[in-house]
C-alpha cells in the first residue's frame, strides 16, 4: 500500500489511471453491449420475427392483412421473401399509404436497417422467398463491365434507357432512373421484380450476370462515370439536344445577328 501511495505523484500516474479507466469502461461495454446481441442471436430468429410482426401490424397490416395474406388494398406477401421487403421498405416505397399516382415512388425511408431486417425476417417466415443479397453478390469485385453493358442493353434498356436514365411506361407509370440507386436495391429489384418490372431470377439472369449489370451501371451512371464531351443534358438523347440547339444555339445566333444588324456603318455627315 505504501508502495502505491509513494508513487501516486509519479509523472505517469495519471496515464496509468486513464488506461485503467478506459479498460474498465471498455470491459464493461464489452460485457454488456455484445451481450444484447448475443442474446438476440441465441433466443434466435423467433424474437426478431416477433419484433418484425409488431412492426408489421403497425405499418403494413392495414393493406396486406394481419397475417400477410393480402387484401383488396395490397397483395399477399407470402413467399415474396426478405429481398422484396428490403427493397420496398429500404427505398421508402413501402409503406405506400401516403403515395398517390399511378405507381408507388421512391421516398424517404422511415425505418432503421435493423427494423427492416426484422420486418424482412417476419415476411420470410411466412413462406420461402429470395434472400437479401450479400455484399459479395452485388460488389464490384470480379465483375465484367462490358458484359454487364451487353446484358443491360438486352434486358433493361427497353424501359430504363441506354444508361439507366429512366423512361415512360403506359398511363403515367414509368421506369425510374437508376442513378444513385444502392447496388443492393438494384440486385433485389432484379431478383424480385417490383411493381411493373419483370423479375429476373437466377435462372434467367445468373448471380454473375446481376453483378456485371450492377458494375456496368456503376461505370456509366454514377459519380464514377467517365463521360467526356461536356454537359450531358440529362442523358436522354436527341430531344434535349434538339431543344438545346434551338434555344441556346439558334437563340444565341439570332441575338448575335440582332447585335450585328444594329451596328451598321453610318454615312459621314459633312
Amino acid at each position: 500500500m505504501k508502495k502505491l501511495s509513494a508513487r501516486r505523484r509519479h509523472p505517469l500516474a495519471a496515464v496509468v489511471v486513464l488506461l485503467l479507466a478506459l479498460a474498465c469502461t471498455g470491459g464493461l461495454y464489452a460485457a454488456f453491449a455484445p451481450a444484447g446481441k448475443a442474446q438476440a442471436d441465441e433466443t434466435s430468429q423467433s424474437l426478431t420475427i416477433e419484433e418484425g410482426k409488431k412492426l408489421y401490424s403497425v405499418g403494413c397490416a392495414s393493406c396486406h392483412g394481419t397475417g400477410g395474406q393480402g387484401s383488396s388494398d395490397g397483395p399477399s406477401l407470402v413467399g415474396v421473401g426478405a429481398a422484396a421487403v428490403d427493397f420496398q421498405v429500404g427505398t421508402g416505397r413501402m409503406p405506400a399509404a401516403t403515395s398517390q399516382g399511378p405507381q408507388v415512388v421512391k421516398k424517404k425511408n422511415i425505418y432503421t436497417q435493423a427494423q427492416i431486417d426484422q420486418l424482412a425476417a417476419y415476411i420470410a417466415s411466412l413462406g420461402a422467398g429470395p434472400e437479401v443479397p450479400t455484399s459479395e453478390q452485388y460488389g464490384p469485385d470480379g465483375a465484367d463491365i462490358a458484359k454487364g453493358g451487353e446484358l443491360f442493353r438486352t434486358n433493361c434498356a427497353q424501359c430504363h434507357n441506354f444508361v439507366g436514365s429512366g423512361g415512360a411506361l403506359t398511363k403515367g407509370k414509368f421506369a425510374p432512373s437508376l442513378e444513385g440507386v444502392d447496388p443492393k436495391h438494384i440486385y433485389e429489384a432484379m431478383q424480385t421484380g417490383p411493381q411493373n418490372m419483370p423479375s429476373f431470377p437466377d435462372t434467367t439472369l445468373t448471380e454473375k450476370n446481376k453483378k456485371d449489370i450492377i458494375a456496368y451501371l456503376n461505370a456509366v451512371n454514377s459519380s464514377n462515370t467517365e463521360n467526356p464531351g461536356g454537359l450531358d443534358l440529362g442523358g436522354i438523347g436527341p430531344v434535349s439536344e434538339g431543344l438545346f440547339a434551338w434555344i441556346f444555339g439558334l437563340g444565341a445566333l439570332i441575338a448575335v445577328a440582332v447585335w450585328v444588324a444594329a451596328r451598321t456603318a453610318k454615312a459621314k455627315k459633312s
Binding site: 434498356a157 430504363h160 441506354f162 436527341p238 439536344e241
Partner: peptide, 8 residues
Amino acid sequence: STGAQPDW
C-alpha cells in the same frame, strides 16, 4: 432502348 428519338 426506350427514349429512342431521331434528331429534331
